[in-house]
Simulated assay, not measured.
Amino acid sequence: MNIAIFLQYYHTPDCPTAARPYALVKRLAQDHDVTVITTRSWEPRRLSQDFPWVPSGANLVRFDVPYHNSMSSLERLRAFLSYAVRAVAHGFRMPPPDLIIGSSPPLSAAMVAAGVASLRGLPWIFEVQDLWPEFPIQMGAIPGPGLPSLLYGLESALYRSATHVVPVSPDMERHVHTLAPNASTTSLEYGTDLQLVADITDDQRSRMRRDLSIDRPSLVLYAGKFGRANAIPTLLDAAQQLSDRSDLLFAFAGRGYYDSAVQQAADQHDHIRAIDPLPYPDTLALFSLADVSLVSFLDRPVLAANSPSKLYDSLATGTPVVVTNPGWTKRLVERHACGWYTPPESPTRLAHRLRRVFDNPDRLEEAGRNARTVAHQQFDRAALMNQYASLIDNVRGST
């Protein structure tokens, strides 16, 4: 089968990301001819050279469309439109594939997939990695009321037009059915690469502990974007409230809007570390060093529905999590006793929760065991990609 994937932001495990697009492309290319229509935006951000940028059996069509987190809303819109125009043109020039996948965000990539599929009479799968336009609307990036209403209508139309919709969390799936009750859907979470976790060595952990100056008995880790949506001020405030705990070290690994705030806290407090982004395998090793990880977002309904890759990576390494999402992640960690919930607007409650966690080492150890169990049972990325491959075969066979 020939499969075309419209995906604006493709990356590999050499980047400081969870690399799910790479895993999907690599898996599908085992059985099919796969062409990814993407951009070069992540290529310069590779931090290592351990993985082939193009998996065997795949072909990448790459456009030069810059993108970075410091862009204004207008600059981002220009990047989305630039990709969309080029991707549409390529979509009509290329030989017709048997199936199209369109991955959002941004919503424009899914629009391209839908348009090419419709005009060429092809089935298409809508992969929903974030809820757009819900996310930028709830974060105040899109003025109302006219434009949001237009975008909601477009989103609903895309769900209805897709042959199948693949959200990456159960709450996203519920959102899809709210707008398109008859949509055919299957939730497939990001998951994590359990083989990379198994490959982590004691020597690697020892080197990382030394190189990153992890010099206290217990490590609390936040690894991910320092974005406006990630409640970073709450985490920093909670860490500072725990300055009396000589056993605790807080590590913040990543980049984003709150770079300066994280670095300032690290400069002022011995128990706080700022760590540059790491390639995905090293990030997994860092999670394996941690005793607790923090998976934090602001209190917005759209953020409660998201699928944070750092959640799966933490669970896979046996590191329990404190989540601030009141949605499905809260239900997950409480149901499986592999973590805890605190509201994102209360650094004092987070600090209190961490005190209780570290004052009860038996419960912490049990939560770690439960974390590893649920990751192996539900979030093995290889198994999830096999499910994705089977879903694609079924979609193609039913059209």
Rank of each mutant, 00 (worst) to 15 (best):
A4W: 04
Y9Q: 11
T17A: 13
Y22W: 07
A23E: 04
L28D: 09
D33K: 03
V34E: 12
I37R: 06
P44L: 12
R45N: 13
L47P: 07
S48N: 05
N69S: 13
S70I: 09
L77G: 12
A79K: 07
Y83C: 09
A89D: 03
P95W: 09
D98P: 06
L99G: 09
S104F: 05
P105W: 00
V112D: 05
A113D: 00
S118R: 12
G121C: 02
L122K: 11
I125V: 15
F126H: 10
E127V: 09
P133S: 09
P136L: 05
I142D: 07
I142C: 07
P145E: 08
L154S: 05
E155M: 01
S156R: 14
A162F: 00
V166I: 02
V166S: 03
S169E: 03
D171Y: 05
M172C: 10
R174L: 14
H175N: 14
V176E: 05
T186K: 13
L188D: 13
V197L: 04
L212H: 09
D215C: 08
R216H: 04
P217V: 01
Y222Q: 02
K225E: 09
L236A: 04
A238S: 06
S246A: 13
L248D: 08
L249S: 02
F252I: 08
G256L: 10
Y257G: 11
S260M: 04
A261W: 13
H271K: 01
H271S: 03
A274D: 15
I275E: 02
P277S: 09
P279N: 11
Y280R: 12
L286S: 14
S293T: 12
L294Q: 11
V295Y: 01
D299S: 04
S307N: 07
S309K: 05
S309H: 04
Y312G: 01
Y312N: 01
D313K: 08
D313W: 12
E334L: 15
W340E: 10
W340G: 10
E345F: 04
P347V: 06
E365Y: 14
G368R: 00
V374D: 03
F379P: 01
D380Y: 11
A383K: 06
L384A: 07
Y388E: 07
L391W: 01
T399N: 12
